[in-house]
Computed example of a mutant assay.
Amino acid sequence: MIGPTTRISTLDDLPALHRLIERAYRGETAKVGWTNEADLLDGQRTDVEELTEILTDPARIMLLAEDAGAMVACLQLVDEGGGTAYLGMLSVEPELQAGGLGRFMIAAAEAEAVARFGADTMRMTVIRQRPELIAWYERRGYVRTGETEPFPLSDERFGLPRRQDLEFVVLAKGL
C-alpha cells in the first residue's frame, strides 16, 4: 500500500474540495466521524466563493491529500507574515477519521509552512466548545496561547450557530 499523497489544490478541485469540507463539518455525514461541528452549527461550513478566494490568494493555499485517486483530506494554510502560518479548515473524509490522516495532514502542513512561507510558528483557532479536538491538537504539540477570538455568529457564510456562546481559542506550535 502506497498511502496518501499531498498536493496543492487548484480551481479544478473546487467541487470535490467543497463537498469534502461540508461532509467533514456539517450534517449527518459529519457525525460518522469522531469530530465534527454538527451539534454546534447548522448551515454551511464554507462556500465555493470562499474557496475560490483562498485558491487565488498567493498568501493562502489548500493542501489536499489523495489516496487511490480520491480526495480524502484537505486543509488551508495562510502566510500571516512574520514567520507565522495559520492552519485551518482541516477536513478528513468522515469514514476515514481516526485512521491517521489528520496526523498525516498536520505533518504535511507544518513542512509546507516552513518550505513555502518560511514559517517558524503555526497558529490555529479551534471552537472552545470542542474540547476533544483541542486535546487532539495538544497531543500534536500545539499549546493554548491564552488568546481567544470571537466566532462570526452573525455571518451565515460560516454556519448557523445552535448556541450563542461560541468562541475560538488560539493554539500555536513552534516549527
Results as ranks from 00 to 15, higher is better:
3 G>A: 04
3 G>N: 08
5 T>E: 10
6 T>Y: 10
7 R>Y: 02
13 D>Q: 09
16 A>Y: 04
16 A>Q: 14
17 L>S: 06
18 H>V: 04
23 R>M: 12
24 A>K: 11
25 Y>S: 13
25 Y>I: 11
29 T>N: 01
29 T>A: 02
30 A>T: 14
33 G>H: 07
33 G>P: 05
34 W>F: 08
35 T>R: 11
35 T>D: 02
35 T>M: 06
36 N>S: 14
37 E>V: 07
38 A>K: 11
38 A>E: 14
41 L>V: 03
41 L>S: 03
44 Q>E: 15
44 Q>N: 11
48 V>C: 12
50 E>S: 05
51 L>M: 11
52 T>Q: 05
52 T>G: 04
52 T>F: 00
54 I>M: 00
54 I>F: 00
57 D>M: 03
57 D>W: 01
59 A>Y: 03
60 R>A: 09
61 I>Q: 07
62 M>N: 09
63 L>M: 05
64 L>M: 10
64 L>R: 06
65 A>P: 08
65 A>N: 07
70 A>W: 03
70 A>N: 09
71 M>K: 09
71 M>E: 14
71 M>L: 15
72 V>P: 01
73 A>I: 02
73 A>N: 08
73 A>S: 11
74 C>V: 03
74 C>T: 11
75 L>Q: 10
75 L>N: 13
76 Q>D: 07
76 Q>F: 04
78 V>Q: 10
83 G>I: 08
84 T>P: 00
85 A>I: 12
85 A>F: 07
87 L>N: 05
88 G>R: 08
89 M>Y: 08
90 L>R: 02
100 G>L: 08
102 G>Q: 08
102 G>W: 02
103 R>H: 09
104 F>M: 12
106 I>G: 05
107 A>K: 11
108 A>S: 13
109 A>F: 06
110 E>A: 01
110 E>T: 06
110 E>F: 00
111 A>E: 15
111 A>R: 12
111 A>T: 15
112 E>W: 08
113 A>K: 05
114 V>A: 08
114 V>N: 03
117 F>N: 10
118 G>Y: 10
120 D>S: 15
123 R>N: 13
126 V>N: 12
128 R>C: 02
129 Q>P: 14
131 P>K: 10
132 E>G: 13
134 I>R: 11
135 A>R: 02
137 Y>F: 14
137 Y>H: 15
138 E>Q: 15
142 Y>N: 08
143 V>R: 15
143 V>P: 10
145 T>C: 05
146 G>E: 15
148 T>W: 01
148 T>E: 15
151 F>C: 11
151 F>S: 12
152 P>Q: 03
152 P>Y: 00
154 S>R: 12
155 D>M: 05
155 D>K: 06
156 E>N: 06
159 G>N: 09
159 G>T: 06
160 L>A: 02
160 L>K: 07
162 R>S: 13
164 Q>M: 12
165 D>F: 00
165 D>Y: 02
166 L>F: 00
166 L>P: 04
168 F>V: 03
171 L>F: 02
